[in-house]
């Protein structure tokens, strides 16, 4: 069991607000680590802090044993971390093709090969190849956002609430896709949709009020309804 990414007591301020007050967790290579917690608990901020978009004021982030909390965002990303933000971060006036092009590192044949492999995983995107991403449906945008993070064969993907705002049937499709990616790559998944979290996750951490308060294997959470009630407000 190799620890791919680890955080230690992350603390982050946004303006004068102390948003993260001690987030500690590990993501193990090849697994899906799920971050759970109520609205406003600090899940998104945790991902942004790892990437350096909201830099921490205290605490550490290790990626493959290397400290990275001081790196600028682009360097962190280039270590092999892909990010799918909560709002998907689609560029509305770029075509699907341009999304693939801008995301792919390297030159020449390699680029085409990666695009091919990625499209095999996201076949629906092919038919919108020349369309502006702004006109895609919510589900298609989400797929595009995931594809864009996946295309560089990043070792770690951080995906923030991929089910947010999608119809149940679309959520299922997203879930299938993520399931196929599982194993190939390590995933940190933020999810409010408990069923999805339970289905995909290997390990969970619960964040409450900016702190990690509980963790374990996913099946433990499945067994402890009282934990879910207490921290997530669900049964």
């Amino acid at each position: 069991m190799e620890v791919l990414l680890k955080t230690e007591n992350l603390e982050t301020f946004i303006g004068q607000y102390h948003i993260l007050q001690g987030v500690t967790f590990e993501a193990i290579r090849g697994e899906v680590t799920v971050l759970l917690g109520r609205n406003g608990a600090g899940k998104t901020t945790t991902l942004r802090t790892i990437l350096g978009l909201s830099p921490p004021s205290r605490g550490k982030v290790f990626f493959k044993q290397k400290e990275i909390q001081e790196l600028p965002t682009y360097k962190t990303a280039n270590l092999g971390i892909g990010y799918v933000p909560e709002d998907q971060g689609i560029f509305p006036y770029l075509t699907v093709e341009e999304h693939f092009k801008i995301a792919t590192k390297g030159k020449g044949d390699k680029v085409n090969e990666r695009i091919e492999t990625t499209l095999a995983l996201f076949p629906d995107l092919k038919q919108f190849w020349r369309k502006q991403a702004g006109v895609l449906s919510g589900g298609q945008k989400q797929m595009l956002a995931i594809a864009r993070a996946y295309i560089n064969y990043n070792e770690l993907l951080m995906i923030d609430e991929p089910s947010k705002g999608l119809a149940p049937i679309v959520v299922e499709k997203v879930m299938e896709t993520l399931e196929r990616m599982k194993g190939e790559t390590t995933i940190i998944l933020v999810e409010q949709n408990y069923l999805m979290a339970e289905y995909l996750g290997d390990r969970f951490y619960i964040i409450d009020d900016g702190k990690t308060v509980l963790s374990g294997e996913m099946k433990e959470l499945k067994e402890h309804e009282e934990w879910r009630k207490k921290y997530l407000g669900i049964s």
């Binding site: 990437l51 682009y74 933000p85 971060g89 864009r148």
Partner: peptide, 9 residues
């Protein structure tokens, strides 16, 4: 931000 998060300086 998204451009940065894709590893572009």
């Amino acid at each position: 931000e998204m451009v940065e998060a894709m590893g572009i300086h």
